[in-house]
């Protein structure tokens, strides 16, 4: 209880260390999701509209990567950016950029896969209509994606939830360095390891509150889009 009061006090008094951690969490996860949207929705649309050999295999691979364990995503990025790795000379390890790369690997398949499903569910009905109205293939695609926006929004919310809650990958490639790469989840992990269970729990409640606020905003936006 005392830890919770302590953390709430830190929130109210604007404790710089706590807010630094909160803002880095949001910055990393939002950037990863934004990149995921940029690449994931086009891939989802492509898989939905185009038929090609090996499409089922591609879809199965995508679904598998939707369940990618965060530590594994972290390991992929680690081997890319380690000092002797292919991207080693840019010194990305233990920086927020490496954390964004790892979270991107986690959210990209989710956004692509769930967007594909959302577009599939609208395609049948709207493709025929749009074509009968004389639309070209680009116009058809755009119409269907717009119709599928609710499903795509749900994909984005799911992806954000995965990113903000993830600890294994950002611990590995971020390193939980104070004032540099420490985020909410790694701070919770660290306090747990120290044995400060109640402080860890209080930080966890703060993280849940932040997720709640973010999701509320996204849902509000979703409702706006619908009407």
């Amino acid at each position: 209880m005392e830890s919770l009061r302590q953390v709430v006090g830190m929130l109210i008094s604007g404790d710089p260390d706590l807010y630094e951690i909160i803002f880095l969490s949001l910055r990393v996860s939002f950037t990863a999701v934004a990149l995921g949207i940029l690449f994931g929705i086009p891939l989802g649309a492509f898989l939905s509209f185009k038929d090609f050999r090996g499409k089922q295999l591609a879809v199965n691979v995508l679904y598998t990567f939707m369940g990618l364990p965060p530590v594994l995503a972290g390991l992929f990025v680690y081997f890319l950016v380690t000092r002797h790795g292919p991207l080693g000379k840019w010194q990305l390890l233990f920086t927020p950029r490496a954390m964004i790369m790892a979270q991107f690997l986690l959210v990209f398949p989710i956004i692509a896969g769930l967007s594909m499903v959302a577009i599939n569910s609208k395609a049948e009905r709207y493709v025929a209509t749009a074509i009968s109205l004389g639309a070209n293939s680009q116009q058809v695609a755009w119409t269907v994606i717009k119709e599928a926006r609710l499903g795509i929004m749900a994909a984005i919310i799911t992806a954000f939830g995965r990113a903000i809650a993830e600890v294994g990958a950002v611990m590995l490639v971020g390193g939980n360095i104070e004032h540099s790469t420490r985020v909410m989840t790694t701070a919770i992990m660290m306090e747990t390891r120290k044995g400060n269970y109640t402080l860890a729990l209080a930080l966890g409640l703060v993280l849940l509150t932040i997720s709640f606020i973010t999701n509320s905003l996204l849902n509000y936006f979703q409702r706006e889009v619908r009407t």
Partner: peptide, 11 residues
Amino acid sequence: GQEWYLSAGQG
């Protein structure tokens, strides 16, 4: 708090 001192909070 020193710039050269990195506190990792890890094993």
